[in-house]
Design a protein around this nucleic acid. Structure first.
Lengths: 147, 147
DNA sequence: AGCATAAATGAGAATTTATCTCATTTTTTT
DNA sequence: AAAAAAATGAGATAAATTCTCATTTATGCT
């Protein structure tokens, strides 16, 4: 249903266009995170390459898209929706998979305290943080089995 | 003194060449981390572009170079020397500066525990992790003042 | 609904970043 | 010191992202 995407766009007063809907649909459908490569495959030629990048930048501007780089240097993108709580990332160095990970409440509290210390020490205004973990997924991973 | 660089290279049984020494000197002299851009500037044309990338890859191979991507998508590189203890990174979203940050012992212990939980939950073998913090440096920053 | 204006798009050119090729030079081995 | 192996420079190539501009689409107004 494209209603979700339309709603997201209008809530952020961004004009509703076909490419934007298609990109949002793809992101919603896949469930994040996804590499730009995979996203392009998924979209086929329904959205021009230049437009895809433009749309991703639009989404970043309205703060509903998070972008980061995986250990193998591919760009990964993920929607940040209201129901999408604070989390971190686990990367498989072999197959490139990225998994969303939530850490414990106590840990987050402690991390917040650490961040406050860092803010003071370096006179920074820290607006965001992330914990990234790298490793190898084991037996279960269908992608890794392929190799 | 190029003795340090020579020592580093020979300790890792990597042949001692001029470009390698120059790149190591630059990294040691600057104090990490540094963007590849800045590194190129620093080296001028004393080392060919292709050689620079090759040398960086060589250093990665012998595990004395850490590479990551800053929020503005530039590649940042940093030497990992013995005396260089475990640390994390603080990025200024404005001027692009990257600062090494050490967090408290207790925090690291707790993080290790969290990582063990994640390993079990996702059946991963986690080999590395990093905490990245983003924000704005304030008055003190010479770079930001420029803007 | 229909028009005018502003904004977004597609297609390909241009830019940027990193890797590759290969003839020459430097290092290592003997 | 000579031979063999490895590294380098310069430029070509490749991949990822942004830019340009003519055309299309969305929006605001009547």
């Amino acid at each position: 249903m494209s209603q979700n995407s339309r709603k997201i766009l209008s809530e952020h007063s961004v004009s509703i266009t076909n490419p934007r809907i298609l990109v949002l649909e793809a992101l919603l459908d896949f469930g994040n995170p996804i590499t730009i490569d995979e996203l392009q495959l998924k979209l086929g030629d329904s959205v021009a390459k230049s437009t895809l990048y433009r749309v991703l930048n639009d989404l970043k501007k309205i703060n509903i898209l998070n972008e980061f780089t995986s250990p193998d240097n591919s760009t990964v993108v993920e929607l940040i929706l209201e129901d999408h709580s604070h989390h971190h990332h686990l990367f498989c160095s072999d197959c490139g998979e990225v998994i969303d990970v939530e850490l414990s409440e106590e840990f987050e509290i402690m991390l917040t305290k650490e961040i406050q210390k860092v803010q003071k020490k370096f006179n920074f205004e820290i607006t965001d943080h992330r914990v990234e973990m790298f490793g190898l997924c084991t037996e279960e991973c269908a992608n890794c089995k392929k190799n």
